[in-house]
Amino acid sequence: MSRRPPRGEYIETDTGNKVARKATLVGTQNIMLGGKTVIQPDVMIRGDLTRTVHAAAPQPASQSATGAPPNNTAVSIGRYCFLSRGCCLRPPGRLYKGVFTYMPLRMGDHVFVGPGSVVQAASIGSHVHIGAQAVVGEFAIIKDYVRILDGAVVPPNMVIPSFSIVAGQPARLIGEVPEGGLEAFELRDLYKTVGNNPQPVPP
């Protein structure tokens, strides 16, 4: 017992993902992590809410007989994403041709999701910063280099163009990301500061 190395707070995978042991990942087989992604404790990802648009066909059991397995990815996350403590990612769902189905939640690279935020977007681009306690409504589309401030409530189906800053309840466009402000979206340094042997924050 004493010879075993102490179990760290995080599970670090070969591709550099750092997943907290206390994170709640439901339906892990449907969650794709791009690598170097940090998932902090108390994060919840609903991978079990998969697409069912073909499930209306005679029977779902026939899918395995047809050869290629259906792509059931519910949540896909790019590289260097940072999911802070207590946030929740769940795929958006809606009626499609009279059948209720969940749609995949796609997230690009360098996406920061603040603590306590709930994200139900259809797609999130790269270099997006979502503040603390924000809510991103169902089927919102967030393009690249977007900053969503703390406590913002992005209404369902909203499309946020690139380089926008949004805030408020409901969220409105309040500004643009300045020319020199793109470096701030990089999450490589933040990635190094968490894990089982965290590095100090660079000055």
Binding site: D48, L49, T50, T52, A55, G93, L95, G98, V99, F100, T101, Y102
Partner: peptide
């Protein structure tokens, strides 16, 4: 009605 459809799906997923 929409909620009833949603529940039909959730019953199979959860």
């Amino acid at each position: 009605k929409g909620l009833a459809r949603q529940i039909d799906v959730l019953r199979r997923m959860i």
